[in-house]
């Protein structure tokens, strides 16, 4: 029997019905067609499915769809304001900080959460915060630089 869930995604009210076993990632991708979050592992080891729940960064693969009743979800689709990119998105482009781009949605969500919590992180703090976001293409160098640049720009 399906479970009815009312929630808010990227500021909009959303209702869906899901099975008890379904993860939030399954719901986002298969029921709501929000395919920005990716399934890289389904075990919380890669970060490609990163979202925020009530502002806190988490893996949507480690959350049941049923759990988000009344919560506020933030996904990569909500990071840009219309066609205006968030600084972290722009700096990822400017720094060539993506190659294949499949980890990028998770990187964007995680980096944004970091900069909201800590506007001036050290390189080491960035690296440890981002350790749960696997990137196999870049070796992380340009991603770290993009986050540093975005932090600097956001601090003004």
């Amino acid at each position: 029997m399906g479970i009815h869930v009312s929630t808010k995604i990227n500021g909009d009210d959303v209702e869906f019905v899901c099975d008890a076993e379904e993860t939030l990632l399954d719901v986002l991708r298969d029921r709501l067609n929000l395919t920005g979050a990716k399934e890289g592992c389904a075990t919380g080891d890669c970060g490609a499915c990163s979202v925020t729940i009530d502002g806190r960064l988490t893996c949507s693969c480690l959350t049941l769809g049923a759990e988000v009743e009344g919560r506020e979800i933030g996904t990569v689709e909500g990071v840009a304001k219309g066609n205006e990119l968030h600084p972290i998105q722009q700096k990822i482009l400017d720094n060539a900080a993506l190659q294949c781009g499949v980890c990028t949605p998770g990187i964007v969500v995680a980096a944004k959460a970091l900069l909201e919590k800590k506007p001036d992180p050290s390189e080491e703090e960035i690296r440890y915060w981002m350790a749960g976001n696997l990137c196999r293409c870049t070796g992380y160098d340009k991603i770290i630089r993009a986050i540093q640049d975005a932090a600097a720009e956001m601090r003004g």
Partner: peptide
């Protein structure tokens, strides 16, 4: 690039 930082890019499972 823009599609990839905004989650719009369509990969194999998308």
């Amino acid at each position: 690039g823009v599609d990839k930082v905004t989650g719009r890019a369509r990969f194999g499972a998308d």
